[in-house]
Each structure stands twice: as structure tokens, then as C-alpha cells.
Design a protein around this nucleic acid. Sequence first.
DNA 1: CCAAAATATGAATAATTATTCACATATTCA
DNA 2: TGAATATGTGAATAATTATTCATATTTTGG
Lengths: 123, 123
Amino acid sequence: MRKTKPRQSEQCEQFEPHEEIIQTLVGKSLDEVTTQKMAEVFKVMGDPTRIAILHALKERELCVCDLSELLHMTPSAISHQLRILRHHDLVRYRKKGRSVFYHLADHHVITLFNQALDHIQEK
Amino acid sequence: MRKTKPRQSEQCEQFEPHEEIIQTLVGKSLDEVTTQKMAEVFKVMGDPTRIAILHALKERELCVCDLSELLHMTPSAISHQLRILRHHDLVRYRKKGRSVFYHLADHHVITLFNQALDHIQEK
DNA sequence: CCAAAATATGAATAATTATTCACATATTCA
DNA sequence: TGAATATGTGAATAATTATTCATATTTTGG
């Protein structure tokens, strides 16, 4: 979030049906915490590198250096992005020797991914 | 996107199974354009204001000033965000008199929205 | 046509963030 | 143990972006 939201009221002159509509919707609004969390999930998936990581992990679990080679990026860059995915519980990991293998956390991630793919391909 | 991706190769010493895995995955990778478009859809939904707008529009079509009142934000701020949603075809509009009424573009938006809601509520 | 209302937009600013670089930590194996 | 490998992380930087402010555009009613 950027700044605190400013107040403002009675934008429309034509208040006849509007005020009633607003009142009905206010009751159905998402609370701020939920809104924030929703935005965060999407924000996390809103980066090409993380999309590429998730797409690769849909196939199989991979270690940092696999991803690093596959995406032609430094292990450091990959690790930073994996941390973000980890912290939002989109991926989980398993340690094996010196390597750390990452995999998708749950089916929601895949469903979200595929829905977005449908959306952009439907044109 | 931020910068051009740097090259780097042979991250892992243990190249035995890795190289084979990488080659298999390279063939299944998303092309750059698709990856970018995917990320953009999510990025667009990755903002609390836009999430709140989309959630309101799930209920019914609304004009800029309705949204402005409902979300306690200036018409200008709302209009800027609606433009982004418009340009990515997440919302469409219909003009009526001085007002412009916005509505969700298609069912994918709702599905994406609800999937994300499921994800965050499942803990 | 004119004034007012509703929406749109460009520039500016403050905040966020993806990557790099340097370095730290952890793990294996000789 | 110590060197090497794999990964993690903090700070810095460049790029992106949400909101504000001022102003433009569009539409209606008189």
C-alpha cells in the first residue's frame, strides 16, 4: 500500500439511486486485511521471473541451481524470488544434501496459473 | 520488466542428472511473451485498490463516482486505476449521459478472484 | 452557447521492488 | 578439519508505480 486513503464524499450530484447503491455495497465490501492479502497473492505472481519459476515447478521439483540454469539467471536472483514465493506459501522446499528442492505448495497455485493462461489466450 | 537477463551457465557441479532435467524443461518453457502477459494480468490484480474495485463490480456495474464514494478515494485516483483495468481488458464500460458505467469483462476475472480468495482463506 | 458535472489525463512525487554484488551460512567429502 | 559447493541475505541501485494536483474533455440542461 502506498499512502493513507483520503476522504471524499458526495461525488455525484445525481444522488437519487446512488446513495442507496453505495449503502448496499458497503455491507458487502471486503475487509481491509482480506483485500490486502488478495492483492499480495496476485502481486507475488505478478512478476515474469516468478511466473517462470512457478511454471517450471508445475513439471517437477527443482533445486535453486536447476532454476538458475533454466532461466539464465544468477542463483542469488533466483533465491531472492524463491524467498518471496516461500513467504507467501506458494512454494515449499525439502533439503537434500547441499541442495534445496522447491515444489509448488498447493493446487490453488496451479489453478490460478491456468486460469490466467486461459484469460490471455482467449482473444 | 526490469533489466535484460544476464547469462550464466553450469551453476551446479553435479551435472549428472541436472543437465538432462534442464533440457527436458527447456522444451516445455513458456515463451517470453506469454510469460510477460501472465505476469501482467497478475500485476494488474496485485493492488488493493484494484482488488476493491473488482470486488465491487462483481456485484453490479458502477460509475466512477460510485466507486469513488464507496472506496473513499478521489475520482481521479479511481479513474487512473480503471484505465489500467480497462487496458488489460479486465473491465469494460458503457456510457450513459455524463456517467461512465464499468463492469467486469469476463468470467475469468471472477474465477481468478475467487481462487485467490480460496487460497488465502485456507489456513 | 454557457455553466456545471463527470470523467480522463499528464506531470510530479513518494514508495516499492527486481537484480546485482559482496559476503555469510550450511553441507559434503577428501 | 578444511576446501569446495549450494544456497541465503543485506545493502545499493535503477526502474516501476499509486496517488495527488492541476487541467482537459465530454455531456447535459437551461
